[in-house]
Amino acid sequence: MIDLHQIVKKCKAYDKKAQKELYDVYSPVLFGICLRYSKSEAEAEDVLQEGFVKILTKINDFKDIGSFEGWMKRIIVNTAISFYHKNKKYNETYDIDEITEKNTENYVWGNEDFTKEELLKVINDLPEGYRVIFNMYAIEGYKHKEIAEKLNISHNTSKSQYLRAKERIREKLEQLSKIKIKNVK
């Protein structure tokens, strides 16, 4: 059993062994987050690297209140967002009025229909903005208001981009399930 408290305490004193221990325990979880926010594994590695350095250098700012894991995850997400800002080449805004939710084909999928790899590929292939918003809203559970603040966009843009992202994802999943059905046949 790992004594997280002890590790954190040592990390605060820049203990190299403790830093490595912390990394060994949490890097898989954190890397999982990085992979979702990135378009490629190489980019995810960069996010993890930069984010973990931030964790190690700012560990003294963590005041033992709340979950340490949650704190680390937030730092990783924030790092991913800063990468997004860096990568952002253009800034498009959509009006919410343009978006209508289409419900023509109501596919309902089960949790076992797709592998993690397939889902990850779908997320990775999303355009930068969609990917960040989808992750933040659907998986991390941020509110549109928080997303808007973090990404420096309007509340409505966050909402509409999210709907578009979801629409795109649904299209891809439909394609995927069609391919799968074909293969089964």
């Binding site: 890097s27 898989p28 979880v29 890397f31 999982g32 987050i33 990085c34 992979l35 979702r36 995810a44 590695e45 993890l48 596919y107 309902v108 999928w109 949790n111 229909d113 797709f114 993690k116 889902l119 997320i123 989808f134 659907a138 998986i139 979801k166 994802i169 649904r170 999943l173």
Partner: peptide, 17 residues
């Protein structure tokens, strides 16, 4: 449905870097 699939799969998603 779309959201749940992703949430379920990725909430505990781990990959060793």
């Amino acid at each position: 449905n779309t959201e749940n699939i992703f949430k379920n799969q990725f909430e505990s998603f781990k990959q060793t870097p």
